Simulated scan of single mutants.
Amino acid sequence: MTPDKDFLIKLAHTKMPYGKYKDRFLIDLPEYYIVWYNSKGFPKGKLGDMLKQVYELKLNGLEDLVRGIRKKYPK
Protein backbone atom coordinates (compact mmCIF):
# COMPACT_ATOMS: atom_id res chain seq x y z
CA MET A 1 0.00 0.00 0.00
CA THR A 2 1.43 3.35 -1.05
CA PRO A 3 -0.06 6.05 1.16
CA ASP A 4 -1.33 9.24 -0.42
CA LYS A 5 -0.89 12.74 0.95
CA ASP A 6 -4.33 12.91 2.62
CA PHE A 7 -3.80 9.52 4.28
CA LEU A 8 -0.43 10.62 5.67
CA ILE A 9 -1.87 13.90 6.98
CA LYS A 10 -4.67 12.00 8.72
CA LEU A 11 -2.19 9.45 10.05
CA ALA A 12 -0.02 12.24 11.43
CA HIS A 13 -2.95 13.56 13.49
CA THR A 14 -4.58 10.29 14.58
CA LYS A 15 -4.32 9.21 18.19
CA MET A 16 -4.75 5.75 19.67
CA PRO A 17 -8.42 5.52 20.67
CA TYR A 18 -8.09 2.97 23.51
CA GLY A 19 -5.81 1.02 25.80
CA LYS A 20 -2.62 1.79 27.65
CA TYR A 21 -1.53 4.31 24.98
CA LYS A 22 -4.90 6.04 24.53
CA ASP A 23 -4.56 9.60 23.17
CA ARG A 24 -0.95 9.09 22.02
CA PHE A 25 -0.28 9.84 18.34
CA LEU A 26 -0.05 6.56 16.42
CA ILE A 27 3.41 7.43 15.11
CA ASP A 28 4.58 7.94 18.72
CA LEU A 29 3.48 4.51 19.93
CA PRO A 30 6.40 2.43 21.19
CA GLU A 31 7.98 0.25 18.53
CA TYR A 32 7.54 -2.93 20.60
CA TYR A 33 3.78 -2.26 20.73
CA ILE A 34 3.52 -1.92 16.95
CA VAL A 35 5.63 -5.07 16.49
CA TRP A 36 3.30 -6.88 18.90
CA TYR A 37 0.30 -5.81 16.82
CA ASN A 38 2.09 -7.03 13.69
CA SER A 39 2.52 -10.50 15.20
CA LYS A 40 -0.94 -10.60 16.84
CA GLY A 41 -2.84 -9.08 13.96
CA PHE A 42 -3.87 -5.49 13.38
CA PRO A 43 -7.46 -4.41 14.07
CA LYS A 44 -9.81 -4.32 11.11
CA GLY A 45 -10.74 -1.08 9.41
CA LYS A 46 -9.11 2.32 9.19
CA LEU A 47 -7.24 2.03 12.50
CA GLY A 48 -5.70 -1.26 11.41
CA ASP A 49 -4.65 0.25 8.07
CA MET A 50 -3.02 3.14 9.89
CA LEU A 51 -1.22 0.88 12.37
CA LYS A 52 0.08 -1.24 9.48
CA GLN A 53 1.45 1.90 7.87
CA VAL A 54 3.02 2.98 11.17
CA TYR A 55 4.70 -0.44 11.34
CA GLU A 56 6.17 0.04 7.85
CA LEU A 57 7.28 3.59 8.63
CA LYS A 58 8.99 2.55 11.87
CA LEU A 59 10.56 -0.45 10.15
CA ASN A 60 12.17 1.95 7.68
CA GLY A 61 13.05 4.69 10.20
CA LEU A 62 10.62 7.23 8.74
CA GLU A 63 8.78 8.34 11.88
CA ASP A 64 10.16 11.87 11.57
CA LEU A 65 8.53 12.19 8.16
CA VAL A 66 5.11 11.84 9.78
CA ARG A 67 6.02 14.15 12.66
CA GLY A 68 7.09 16.74 10.09
CA ILE A 69 3.76 16.38 8.29
CA ARG A 70 1.95 17.02 11.59
CA LYS A 71 3.89 20.29 12.01
CA LYS A 72 3.48 21.36 8.39
CA TYR A 73 -0.27 20.60 8.28
CA PRO A 74 -1.66 21.48 11.72
CA LYS A 75 -5.30 20.66 12.37
Rank of each mutant, 00 (worst) to 15 (best):
residue 59 L to M: 03
residue 9 I to N: 11
residue 62 L to E: 14
residue 31 E to I: 11
residue 24 R to V: 14
residue 36 W to Q: 14
residue 50 M to W: 07
residue 60 N to W: 04
residue 42 F to W: 08
residue 8 L to H: 08
residue 2 T to E: 15
residue 66 V to A: 05
residue 42 F to T: 08
residue 54 V to K: 07
residue 27 I to L: 06
residue 71 K to W: 12
residue 59 L to V: 02
residue 55 Y to E: 01
residue 12 A to L: 05
residue 22 K to C: 09
residue 34 I to N: 02
residue 40 K to D: 11
residue 23 D to T: 03
residue 73 Y to L: 09
residue 31 E to G: 08
residue 70 R to Y: 09
residue 48 G to T: 07
residue 7 F to L: 12
residue 35 V to H: 13
residue 50 M to H: 06
residue 26 L to N: 06
residue 24 R to E: 14
residue 72 K to N: 09
residue 19 G to R: 00
residue 61 G to E: 04
residue 30 P to W: 12
residue 44 K to Y: 13
residue 43 P to S: 12
residue 45 G to P: 09
residue 55 Y to M: 03
residue 55 Y to N: 02
residue 19 G to I: 08
residue 8 L to W: 02
residue 62 L to M: 12
residue 6 D to T: 15
residue 27 I to A: 00
residue 48 G to N: 07
residue 11 L to S: 05
residue 23 D to S: 10
residue 39 S to T: 14
residue 30 P to L: 08
residue 68 G to P: 05
residue 24 R to Y: 09
residue 61 G to L: 05
residue 63 E to I: 06
residue 37 Y to P: 02
residue 1 M to G: 14
residue 50 M to G: 06
residue 13 H to F: 03
residue 38 N to P: 03
residue 41 G to T: 09
residue 49 D to N: 14
residue 51 L to R: 08
residue 67 R to T: 03
residue 46 K to E: 15
residue 5 K to R: 15
residue 19 G to T: 04
residue 48 G to S: 10
residue 53 Q to T: 13
residue 15 K to P: 00
residue 70 R to D: 05
residue 63 E to Q: 09
residue 45 G to D: 10
residue 59 L to W: 01
residue 66 V to D: 03
residue 40 K to F: 08
residue 62 L to Q: 14
residue 46 K to W: 11
residue 16 M to A: 01
residue 55 Y to V: 00
residue 13 H to M: 04
residue 33 Y to F: 15
residue 3 P to Y: 10
residue 28 D to L: 09
residue 22 K to Y: 06
residue 1 M to D: 10
residue 2 T to K: 15
residue 8 L to C: 15
residue 67 R to Y: 06
residue 56 E to A: 11
residue 35 V to K: 15
residue 72 K to Y: 10
residue 37 Y to V: 01
residue 48 G to C: 08
residue 64 D to E: 13
residue 4 D to V: 07
residue 51 L to H: 04
residue 7 F to V: 09
residue 1 M to V: 12
residue 62 L to R: 14
residue 1 M to Y: 13
residue 60 N to D: 11
residue 71 K to D: 04
residue 14 T to C: 06
residue 43 P to M: 08
residue 10 K to H: 11
residue 47 L to H: 04
residue 25 F to Q: 01
residue 1 M to E: 10
residue 68 G to I: 02
residue 11 L to W: 09
residue 18 Y to P: 00
residue 71 K to H: 08
residue 15 K to L: 07
residue 20 K to A: 09
residue 39 S to D: 12
residue 7 F to T: 13
residue 72 K to M: 11
residue 62 L to I: 03
residue 9 I to Q: 14
residue 18 Y to K: 14
residue 55 Y to D: 00
residue 33 Y to W: 13
residue 19 G to C: 07
residue 23 D to Q: 12
residue 74 P to D: 07
residue 71 K to C: 00
residue 68 G to C: 08
residue 23 D to M: 02
residue 73 Y to A: 10
